[in-house]
């Protein structure tokens, strides 16, 4: 290659891109995705800012929604069904688990329709499609952060009022890892679903119902120690099960457990689903526009 390049354009001149038809399955090019990091942030920022424009309460919704959900659940599961909340007020017991769960759930639902809801954009411009699921993880992470701060405030209020809440300080380092695992799992499940909804549109309507169902198979409104035998094992083989249990245990000092083996199993499942999801997603992204 010669060096006599136009100064303004020379920088990328040597970078040759080759496009040829690919056969079978392949892994997406994460280097290419990283080159679009600015776009990832812009999409994430758009998601956050657009949502609350022209609403009266604006970002207050970030606080109102989980509190309402926790109040309703406290009434139904704590008040009427009287589920044992390990000696904690049910409101706190639920809120801690729900904070992480709602992060996972919102990542899955917003990723599951990546192809169908962006079909118009995809038909006109190319960019690595994985940019969208990743930016969904980030914009939801912002909401998670707000809700986590809210959780801390709620814990402080309960603590001041005399409730015995003792976070497991020695394990706090595990919390970001649990959040990261939830994000990876959500992306895996979401990309897998988005590949399916691209082809079978009707599945899109089933996603929220499926996620809701999944919530009840996961120890969010109850804790795994209330279960026994096969049901308990089933609940903990579910990759989100041990994650939620550990999260609540660390934050509240009760209402869950840390089982290393189940956590490792969950991590293995997460990586497998993430791998599968991104490969299938990549397969669909290559020719999706020909089928819409």
């Amino acid at each position: 290659m010669s060096e006599e390049k136009k100064p303004a354009l020379g920088a990328r001149d040597n970078q040759i891109t080759v496009i040829r038809p690919k056969k079978g399955l392949s892994f997406p090019n994460f280097g290419e995705v990283a080159a679009y990091k600015d776009l990832i942030w812009l999409f994430a920022g758009r998601d956050i800012s657009v949502k609350y424009r022209q609403t009266v309460l604006g970002p207050l919704w970030l606080i109102i929604m989980p509190v309402l959900s926790a109040l309703v659940s406290s009434f139904v599961f704590g008040g009427i069904a009287r589920i044992d909340s390990s000696g904690l007020p049910y409101f706190v017991f639920y809120f801690a688990a729900f904070t992480l769960w709602s992060y996972f759930a919102s990542c899955v639902t917003s990723t599951a329709t990546t192809f169908t809801s962006n079909a118009l954009l995809f038909r006109r411009v190319w960019f690595p499609r994985l940019v969208l699921p990743i930016s969904a993880l980030l914009s939801n992470l912002f909401r998670f952060a707000v809700q986590f701060l809210l959780l801390i405030v709620i814990l402080l209020i309960f603590w001041v009022c005399g409730t015995d809440i003792a976070p497991v300080w020695g394990m706090v380092w595990l919390l970001p890892l649990l959040v990261a695992e939830s994000a990876l799992l959500a992306m895996g499940v979401g990309t897998l679903l988005s590949a399916l909804t691209a082809k079978y549109r009707d599945l899109a309507g089933l996603v929220p119902i499926g996620v809701d169902l999944w919530k009840y198979l996961t120890p969010v409104v109850y804790t795994a120690s209330l279960l026994s035998g096969g049901v308990r094992i089933f609940c903990l083989i579910n990759p989100m099960g041990p994650v939620i249990e550990a999260f609540r245990y660390i934050v509240l000092g009760a209402g869950g457990e840390i089982s290393v083996w189940y956590l490792l199993l969950s991590l293995a499942e997460t990586l497998l689903i993430f791998f599968l999801g991104t490969v299938v997603f990549h397969r669909v992204e290559r020719n999706f526009v020909d089928t819409v």
Binding site: D13, I16, I19, R46, S49, R124, V125
Partner: peptide, 29 residues
Amino acid sequence: ITEPTEGTISFRGRIASMLEVGTGFHPEL
């Protein structure tokens, strides 16, 4: 935007495409 069925395309640098101007505009922004 889509892959060829056969053959190879190679190019240097980046391709800036002005296909369909205005895609991705968000009304609220």
